[in-house]
Every structure is written in structure tokens, then in C-alpha cells.
């Protein structure tokens, strides 16, 4: 699992860690049932506070992407399959947007607006 954080970014560190997990799931490198590394290990590797990682895992749990299981730690939930299913359509949409000269940020705003209307 690839994790990237930028301490100079305006986004909170825990949000960036959660974002890494979301990105790995969307890319299909993490699938339902996969175990996330322990929060302690992530904290040591990224050289951040343990509570920052725990907060990221809590955020992911609140979103339903991750389940906390006793004895197994944080596990990717079945929600990951839904993300993987949308991946092909997202890629097609992104390709169409690129062909029309619409950048990814604008496209993301468009999708967000569509989601709020729905």
C-alpha cells in the first residue's frame, strides 16, 4: 500500500492518509477483505503521531470504507468493490472530459454537484 503525505499541504495530515487509502482502493490495489497495516506501523513509517493515523482510520470507518475488527485491526469493507465497479466508468468519464478539454478538478466539481442534486 502506497501512502503519501505532504506536511506543507493545507489539507490535514489525517485527511491525506485517508486519501491515500481511498486512492489505493479506487485503483484496485486494495480490495475488500484486505487488512490495513497497523496504525502504529503507519505512524512509524510516515513519522507522524499515532493519533493522526487513528483519526484517519476512524474517518475511513465513518465513511464505511474500512471496518474495525477485533483482533484483525482495520479491514477494507465490501464498499471497496463498489468503488472498483465504478472505476471503469470513472476512467471513461475522465477520458471524455480530457477530450473535451475539461480538467480533472472541474470534472470532480461537476460530479460533486451531480451527487448533491441526486
Amino acid at each position: 500500500m502506497l501512502l503519501r503525505i505532504d506536511p506543507d499541504s493545507t489539507a490535514a495530515l489525517y485527511d491525506q492518509i485517508a486519501g491515500s487509502v481511498r486512492r489505493e482502493t479506487a485503483a484496485g490495489r486494495l480490495a475488500a477483505g484486505d487488512r490495513l497495516p497497523s496504525a502504529r506501523e503507519v505512524a512509524a513509517a510516515l513519522d507522524v503521531n499515532l493519533h493522526t493515523v487513528l483519526k484517519a482510520y476512524q474517518l475511513l470507518r465513518d465513511e464505511g470504507l474500512v471496518e474495525m475488527r477485533r483482533g484483525r485491526g482495520a479491514v477494507i469493507s465490501a464498499r471497496a468493490d463498489a468503488l472498483a465497479e465504478l472505476r471503469a466508468e470513472a476512467a471513461a468519464l475522465a477520458a471524455r472530459a480530457r477530450a473535451l478539454g475539461v480538467g480533472p478538478d472541474v470534472l470532480a466539481a461537476l460530479v460533486r454537484a451531480a451527487g448533491e442534486d441526486a
Binding site: M1, L3, R4
Partner: peptide, 12 residues
């Protein structure tokens, strides 16, 4: 490729 100052780790 990384942004300056960005930290990257891989856990497996």
C-alpha cells in the same frame, strides 16, 4: 515522482 517535501512510504 513526488512534490518537494512530500513523504512517501510503502507498506506490504
Amino acid at each position: 515522482s513526488r512534490a518537494p517535501g512530500e513523504r512517501t512510504v510503502w507498506l506490504g
